[in-house]
Simulated assay, not measured.
Amino acid sequence: MTAHNELRLLPWAGPGGKPCYLSTDDVEGFMSRLADHIEAIQLGMASELLKQATPVLDDETANGEELSLLAAQLAGALRDVLRVATSRGNRHTTGSDEDAESGL
């Protein structure tokens, strides 16, 4: 089992929006691969949403309902991207610490 500071933040939330973590040393395990796949989907969806958002924001005839829906979708995508970035940042920091300790 991994130490608390080595837990992987997963790209989905648990009940009540609480963060979910994975404790494993197996980066090729089922849950690690599932998390990697979900992260890739979330990042791809955020990228596509950003492409779609620009025309809506540039459209002077866009109504409040369209803009409200876009804002909600962008907020959800931003939440997902931040969770992915946090998870990857935590794993990168942990890996760097291990490399430094081993002299790499």
Rank of each mutant, 00 (worst) to 15 (best):
P15R: 15
H37N: 12
S87F: 00
D26S: 09
D58C: 06
D99A: 15
E60C: 06
A40T: 09
V84R: 03
R79T: 13
G17Y: 11
L34W: 01
T2H: 01
R83M: 09
G89V: 06
Q73W: 03
A71P: 06
L57N: 06
S68H: 14
P11G: 11
L70F: 08
R33W: 00
R79H: 12
D25T: 00
L9Q: 10
K51E: 13
L57V: 08
T86I: 04
L43S: 08
L9S: 05
F30C: 04
I41S: 14
E98Y: 04
A62I: 03
L50M: 06
R33G: 00
L104I: 10
I38M: 13
A71C: 09
G44Y: 11
G76F: 00
A53N: 10
S47Q: 15
L57Y: 01
A40I: 01
L9W: 03
S87N: 07
L10H: 05
L69N: 13
E66N: 11
S68E: 15
L50T: 14
D99Q: 11
N5E: 15
I38F: 07
T2Q: 02
G76K: 07
R83E: 05
S87G: 15
D25E: 14
P19R: 06
D25I: 00
L82H: 14
H92L: 13
R88C: 07
L49P: 14
T24D: 00
L78M: 12
V27K: 00
L67T: 06
I38H: 05
Q52F: 03
A100C: 00
L49G: 09
D25M: 03
S96I: 02
E98W: 03
T94G: 08
T61W: 05
D80I: 02
E65R: 14
A85M: 10
D59I: 03
A13F: 02
D80F: 01
V81Y: 04
S96D: 07
Q42N: 14
E28L: 10
P11S: 09
R83P: 02
E39F: 01
G16E: 14
G17F: 11
L78W: 08
Y21L: 05
S47C: 11
V84G: 02
D36A: 05
H4Y: 10
H37P: 03
G89P: 04
F30S: 14
